Amino acid sequence: MNEIQKRPDRDAEENMGLGIVAYILFFVPLLAAKDSAFARHHANQGLLLLLLVIAVNVIGNIPLIGWLLYPVGMLLVLALFVVGIVNATQKTKKSLPIIGGINLIK
């Protein structure tokens, strides 16, 4: 067990910046901090947010229904984006509401 795994508070302290970057480019923390549970958690949340953006855009292209749901979906994405960045800056591993329970990156 390495030192980062022994001290999760230090992990969050050292990788807070990568946690924030994860919501813009989810794969960067996976490359820069392979052993960090904090960075992996936020990379997972960033990936889920990216998949939600893709789904909202696909649904948004459906005539009528999609045109009505698209603005609501993008507001949801924006709110989740802000929540994720706030969680990373507070050095917590809280999951995003609604989509955060899914674990794609182990």
Rank of each mutant, 00 (worst) to 15 (best):
L75N: 08
V21M: 13
V86F: 03
L48D: 00
A79Q: 01
A22G: 09
L31W: 09
N103Q: 15
L104A: 07
P63T: 10
N61M: 07
I62H: 06
V21T: 11
L18P: 06
I20C: 15
I24V: 15
I98Y: 10
R40Q: 12
Q90I: 01
G66P: 07
L78R: 00
L68G: 12
L48E: 00
N87M: 05
Q5H: 11
F38Q: 04
P8Q: 10
R40N: 11
L48T: 00
K106Q: 15
M1L: 14
H41S: 11
F26I: 02
P71H: 06
L68V: 14
I4S: 14
L50P: 00
L47E: 02
L52K: 00
L48M: 12
L64M: 15
A43C: 14
E14K: 13
M1D: 15
K94D: 10
Q90G: 07
V86G: 03
I105K: 02
L64C: 14
L104S: 04
N57F: 06
I102V: 12
Y23N: 04
G73L: 04
L51K: 03
A88D: 02
V21W: 08
I98G: 05
P71F: 06
D35G: 14
L76D: 01
G60K: 02
Y70L: 10
K94F: 07
L31Y: 11
S95M: 11
G46D: 02
S95F: 05
T92N: 07
A79I: 14
N44F: 04
H41P: 10
N44V: 09
A79L: 13
N44A: 11
M16K: 08
F27Q: 06
P71R: 06
N87C: 06
G46Y: 00
I99D: 03
R7Y: 11
A55I: 07
K93G: 11
L80C: 01
L52R: 00
V56D: 02
K34N: 15
H42M: 04
V28A: 12
G19Q: 08
H41R: 06
Q5K: 12
N15I: 02
G60D: 02
V28G: 10
L31A: 12
Q90V: 06
H42E: 03
I4A: 14
P63F: 12
